[in-house]
C-alpha cells in the first residue's frame, strides 16, 4: 500500500502558477485563472503564488461594471472547491501596496520572498501569468 502511494506520487507533478499582473489592465490573470481551473481537475500538486501586482487580483470590493469587463475576483473563492488550497502571498508585495490579508477575498498564506523562493525551487513546472 505504501509502495503504491509512492508510485502514484511519482506521477504527480508540482506545478506553481505565479500571478504577477493586476487583474483588469491585461488578460493575463484572468486567462491564468482559467488555466488553473482546468489543471485543478488533473490532480497535480498545484500552488498559486501572488507576487507584485498579482495581489490586486484578490482585492475586495472590485466592481468592474463601469469598465465593461467581467469581474472574476469571486472565482478565486471557488478554488477551494477544486482542492486548490495552496495560495501564497508575498509579504513584501503585500506590505508595499499598503494591504493586509483583511483586504483580500480569500484565505491565503503570507510568506517571505525567501520562503516562496524555496518552494519555487521544489517545483517541476512554474508558469507565470
Amino acid at each position: 500500500m505504501a509502495n503504491m502511494e509512492l508510485e502514484e506520487n511519482a506521477n504527480v507533478k508540482k506545478i506553481m502558477h505565479v500571478l504577477r499582473h493586476a487583474p483588469h489592465g491585461t488578460i493575463y490573470t484572468y486567462e491564468g485563472l482559467e488555466m488553473i481551473l482546468i489543471m485543478a481537475a488533473y490532480e497535480q500538486d498545484l500552488s498559486l503564488a501572488f507576487i507584485g501586482d498579482g495581489i490586486y487580483a484578490l482585492k475586495k470590493n472590485q466592481d468592474t461594471a463601469g469598465i465593461g469587463i467581467k469581474g472574476f475576483a469571486r472565482t478565486f473563492m471557488a478554488l477551494d472547491g477544486y482542492d486548490v488550497e495552496k495560495l501564497y502571498v508575498d509579504q513584501h508585495s503585500l506590505e508595499e501596496r499598503g494591504l493586509t490579508v483583511e483586504d483580500l477575498v480569500v484565505d491565503v498564506e503570507v510568506m517571505s520572498s525567501a520562503e516562496i523562493g524555496r518552494l519555487m525551487k521544489e517545483q517541476d513546472v512554474i508558469i507565470h501569468h
Binding site: 489543471m39 488533473y42 497535480q44 513546472v125 512554474i126
Partner: peptide
C-alpha cells in the same frame, strides 16, 4: 484544450515558457 497543456506539463521533462 487546456487539458492538453496539462498533459504536456506532466509528460515532459521541462516546460519552458
Amino acid at each position: 484544450g487546456l487539458g492538453t497543456l496539462t498533459d504536456i506539463a506532466i509528460r515532459n521533462d521541462r516546460l519552458v515558457t
